[in-house]
Design a protein around this nucleic acid. Structure first.
Lengths: 313, 313
DNA sequence: CACACCGATATAGAAAATCTATATGGCAAA
DNA sequence: TTTGCCATATAGATTTTCTATATCGGTGTG
């Protein structure tokens, strides 16, 4: 089968633009090249086709009748390609689909994602809030932000923060928790979904890691959080997730004794996938926003000379 | 204004073909490049756009939904470009418009152009037969074959033949023209449109260049020719134009004494114009056919070991 | 379990295409 | 006659595209 394009597509585009615009200069501007480059495209195409496409007159270059006749087809063709490509890139660039846990969403992201949207208008973040991480290889999911040790199969991860954790409680029960030993006498809120390690913290605090801890039990992390804020007991929580409530006084860190765990919050993506630009924007934004939020939102808007925390992939 | 094509048109074409054909191998075949080249087009495009367009699966490469959605537009776009370009080149390549004189047409070209058409099926020769040469810069005229000294303004020429000329007449009056001096006693046919030079021939024949020549006068060259064939007198004509009639006996060259003039038949084209391929085919054909026709059509189909006459531009 | 095959990918370097910079030509207007 | 505009031609630099080749991952078969 003969080659349907005996001249380069770039040359055909130059021809279409010159024919439509009527001169080399506006065509060069539209193409983003010099007038000489456009002129060469035309000449090489004419030589390759073995025919002239334009008349060179004292008044300038004019498309010959045969070209005028097919110009609507050429213009239509390029317009369709342009529109198709715009639809393709627009549809994709417009929405970032993220799967997150409820705590990360309700205690951190929801309060900050407006800043991301302000930075990237036209890019909408859509959260899918689930207990377990969704299958990241789904084409309609771009990434996840999840808590764990980051060893999920088929997933690439980069740690964004949230490794430190410690007990928090409402100021209402401040007098009842003056020392770690008091944990034996006050309610300790249990979140069944939590992966945080009480024994590790107790060890760090110099207590028996098997110290019995009693209190209300919740199957939903957000409810456990609300219980702590309302004064129902002590909750072990990631510093990153409690920073906002601590900064505005809804919670206090009674012992001020954080422990660094092996787990943390990770930005997770499907292994082997190319990274869309919009995901890169989100990654970069997280890399800046997480360190900046360490002291909670009350302190976040003041000038901060601290360097960004190392952000590893 | 943003670049409407953030990826090369070649890459977009590769994407469209792969999405439509379903694999790299058939796409590479359609594009006339290697599988590696197609793969690179896809990858570079995805990186440039910041998004994936295809899913790589064990069953092979599959377009993602967003690409599937715009594929009709892309396919439509390339089809329009292809069809437009085919129309452009087809419309042009299909017809060769030539302006010629009536003698050249009726005594030479008409009898031979079938050979050209046989060589180039799909390429139709259209003759515009006029007394004077048409304006060759007209876009609907490709070239002319005209008799003259080749110094027309705004015209490029290449000599094709017809410089030699001499008297011819019907065999019916053979007995009346045994020597050049007999010209004073027989009718000499005058063609008012002719540029041939009786005085030059008479000088070559050893006669007074001012020898009075009398006979019927025609304003149309074809009629003058017919008068000669019907025995009405002697006609001075270009050998090239009489060769066929001489070869089949309708005419004789009573003195067999040709003279070489400054004029001849020229292939003429508008100065400064690029030469279409179809015109090049015609030029090449003339370069072979004119020398081959020197002895007239009766002798032309026998094997001829004569080398082609030099064909100058 | 090992091997062969298929389809795709990555890379280095060659080849081709495209571009810029510059000089030049032709024409019209001042 | 000079100047400005539009287009052209050319050399060489730059970028793009291609080929050749090695490799990878998955599947099917012996």
């Amino acid at each position: 089968m003969a080659n349907p394009f005996p001249i380069p597509l770039n040359a055909l585009r130059a021809i279409e633009i010159v024919a439509r615009r009527g001169a080399l200069a506006p065509a060069a501007e539209e193409l983003g090249v010099t007038i000489g480059a456009v002129s060469q495209h035309l000449r090489r195409a004419e030589d390759r086709l073995g025919m002239e496409l334009f008349a060179r007159t004292p008044q300038g270059i004019k498309p010959l009748p045969a070209l005028v006749q097919v110009l609507p087809q050429l213009t239509g063709g390029f317009t369709q390609l342009q529109d198709g490509l715009a639809s393709l890139t627009g549809a994709h660039e417009g929405v970032l689909n993220v799967t997150v846990g409820s705590v990360f969403a309700s205690r951190w992201l929801i309060w900050r994602v407006n800043k991301f949207s302000a930075l990237y208008p036209g890019l909408e973040v859509r959260l899918t809030v689930t207990g377990a991480m969704l299958d990241l290889s789904r084409p309609d999911i771009d990434c996840g932000v999840r808590y764990g040790d980051g060893t999920w199969p088929g997933v690439d991860v980069s740690l964004i923060g949230g490794q430190d954790y410690q007990p928090v409680c409402s100021p209402l029960i401040r007098d009842r928790v003056k020392s770690p030993a008091d944990l034996a006498h006050v309610p300790v809120i249990a979140d069944q979904t939590s992966m945080l390690d009480w024994p590790a913290w107790l060890t760090k605090a110099g207590l028996d890691p098997a110290l019995p801890l009693n209190g209300p039990v919740y199957s939903d992390a957000s409810l456990a959080f609300d219980a702590a804020i309302s004064g129902q007991g002590i909750l072990l929580a990631a510093d990153m997730m409690t920073a906002d409530a601590v900064s505005d006084g809804r919670l206090i860190r009674p012992f001020d004794l954080p422990v660094r765990g092996k787990r943390g919050y990770f930005l997770a993506t499907a292994k082997g996938r190319r990274e869309p630009k919009k995901l890169g924007f989100f990654r970069d934004w997280l890399a800046a926003e997480v360190p900046a939020s360490v002291l909670g939102y009350v302190h976040q808007n003041v000038p901060n000379t601290a360097t960004l925390a190392p952000f590893s992939k």
